[in-house]
């Protein structure tokens, strides 16, 4: 019997695909964002609300990930933005190779901003690099302020942390300060945004974050 040392990362095929995508996005100056949350936190609502402001100035597209249906793609198209749907069947996350395959459907080499809406799930998507510049973790006040502690790997993968449905905060036992504090115990550099897609509170700051990202990416491409 012989022992062979390997010491190779297990997700290496996905990591290689993601590295290729990252090079391509860099060359094209495409700011790429991966949005992750539980199902029903408001990922698509957030996009519906902010894409209007962004798509009037920039070339924007969305890749939607769900197990089934084209509902989210249709919602994005209604606000006048190019969108393509990935139906994963049963898979709980998106992989880099699927993103690469869908890029031609949204003029993927001529974008200022590409938003990937991942499958609603606070566990698996954090394991898969998609070549993105930033990960957004979205949480809504109906979910509980201890979620960062319960799903630490997701919050550790995040760059910004958005708390949605803040208009409902008076009706639920969700302590916003505690949620932010819990998230920062996992990752101290997380930048937080408190919003309501319903009342549009705080959305201007999120739009501003996207614009800063788009401009920064242009400068380094």
């Amino acid at each position: 019997m012989e022992k062979i040392e390997i010491n190779q990362k297990v997700l290496s095929k996905n990591d290689m695909d993601a590295a290729e995508l990252r090079n391509r996005f860099k060359k094209n100056g495409t700011f790429t964002v991966n949005i992750m949350s539980s199902p029903g936190s408001g990922k698509t609502s957030l996009l519906e609300k902010i894409l209007g402001a962004l798509s009037s100035k920039y070339n924007v597209a969305v890749i939607e990930g769900d197990l089934q249906t084209e509902n989210d793609k249709e919602r994005i198209e209604k606000v006048g933005v190019k969108a393509v749907q990935i139906q994963t069947g049963g898979a709980c996350h998106l992989e880099a190779a699927e993103i690469e395959k869908k890029l031609p459907f949204v003029d993927g080499d001529n974008l200022d901003l590409l938003i990937i809406e991942n499958v609603g799930n606070l566990v698996c998507p954090s394991e898969y690099d998609l070549g993105q510049d930033a990960n957004i973790i979205l949480l809504s006040v109906t979910e509980g302020d201890d979620k960062p502690l319960k799903y630490p790997t997701m919050f550790f993968a995040g760059d910004i942390f958005i708390i949605n449905k803040v208009d409902l905060a008076p009706y639920v036992d969700f302590d916003i300060n505690k949620a932010v504090e819990n998230a920062k115990k996992i990752k101290s550099t997380l930048e937080e945004f408190i919003i309501s897609c319903k009342t549009e509170e705080g959305l201007d700051k999120v739009i501003d974050w996207f614009e800063r990202g788009i401009l920064a990416k242009k400068q380094c491409s």
Binding site: E2, K3, V10
Partner: peptide, 8 residues
């Protein structure tokens, strides 16, 4: 998350 070694 890596394969350390195999015995063959």
């Amino acid at each position: 998350l890596e394969i350390a070694y195999i015995d063959i």
